[in-house]
Design a protein around this nucleic acid. Sequence first.
DNA 1: TTCGTAATTTAGTCTTGTCTAAAAAATAAT
DNA 2: ATTATTTTTTAGACAAGACTAAATTACGAA
Lengths: 220, 220
Amino acid sequence: MGHLSITEENYLKSILKLSEHNHTKIGTNEIAYEINISAASVSDMLKKLADKKLIIYQKYYGVKLTKTGEQYAKNLVRKHRLWEVFLTQKLQFSWDEVHDLAEQLEHVKGDDMINRLEKFLGNPKFDPHGDPIPDNKGNIVVRKQQLLIELKKGEKAVIIGVKDTAATFLQFLDSIKISLGTKFTVIGVVIYDHSMQLKLQDGRELMLSQQVCSNIYVSS
Amino acid sequence: MGHLSITEENYLKSILKLSEHNHTKIGTNEIAYEINISAASVSDMLKKLADKKLIIYQKYYGVKLTKTGEQYAKNLVRKHRLWEVFLTQKLQFSWDEVHDLAEQLEHVKGDDMINRLEKFLGNPKFDPHGDPIPDNKGNIVVRKQQLLIELKKGEKAVIIGVKDTAATFLQFLDSIKISLGTKFTVIGVVIYDHSMQLKLQDGRELMLSQQVCSNIYVSS
DNA sequence: TTCGTAATTTAGTCTTGTCTAAAAAATAAT
DNA sequence: ATTATTTTTTAGACAAGACTAAATTACGAA
Ligand SMILES: [Mn+2]
Ligand SMILES: [Mn+2]
Ligand SMILES: [Mn+2]
Ligand SMILES: [Mn+2]
């Protein structure tokens, strides 16, 4: 557990992120795109991370986190999400403002501090975007969730998360007064463009585009 | 106000610190000693900081913060001390544990966050060691304070700060149950070694060495 | 005033993390 | 099976920040 640089931490975190949707090995280009760096630089860094046994790396064949690397990366995600909760719950930031700050705060060293922060926040299990917060051993609560787009006419559900966390998307949701916890029924699906019409618990009716519906997680 | 690296920030902060006790220009060696770096490296960095108009620097003749540099450095101190308050008040750390964490947290960018943190903490004016917290314009409350060592027999006072913030010193004070706010009367001063005998408000009597008394700030 | 020491700067390297351009390997297309 | 294309790695450079050793400058003591 010798301590890593911020740069190394960011590589691990993006490899973890890419691993989540992509079960096979991660390519150099994918990482390069994710953290906005040239593929050549990524190639260099992968060698270093492999030397430190944080990733399994075979030239030309992509990369995978080792158990140690995964542990480290999950701890970063834990820190990131707990800080996001702090920023929204305690400092009254909105959910579209917290990511960049958490991106910095996640690199502050001190596991004891994070455990205390977790307790101070009341042991939250999800961050402001509905993403699960790993515990201090890296375990993550799995929730039964699906994308709004997958629902059929007549189904009832509640919004529990967002897939896209871009500020513009979050601000759009704010503007139409949709947030985590909003309950609704699907009252129509347009065949032509797959827009969905929802009836919210408060009585309002709303039409959402396919793109929006593909970026909202719900639970029934 | 282009943003500075952590390294540059640390230089500014130590120059400010040295300026407080030393009203003349600050020498290269002093800075080198303060941040544990070779004088040669300091010399290099001073050139860069001067180029950025953060310090006034004349080769071989020492250095002084410009108004901009001072503003920047004071903002760092502000951040450092507010985070220290957060760590003690909200996360229940003791006063000897917070410095190193604050040393990292002070470098997180985001003045809005700091202003919100300040409000969340109830606009504290002093940190856990009794040091004043600059406001968001860099203004610092000045308190009438003196060192315990300067008191005479018979004088009453209250402890409001510590000059040395080393963990060992703070832990020693904890061990003899002395903290900020402790009230006492000087009931004797030993001529031989300048130890002082105090009678605390709770009735306990205590003998403190000259070195200890030289590192405690009091107010009458 | 001159000399010797201490403080400071310069010169030359090193490491980390980045880049562009070029080479090499893997994969897709014919 | 060959070729063309894409992906990945290597080569060579650069900036930031650090170091050690050597050269300068300042300054206190004789
Ligand atoms: Mn990061
Ligand atoms: Mn989040
Ligand atoms: Mn610092
Ligand atoms: Mn302090």
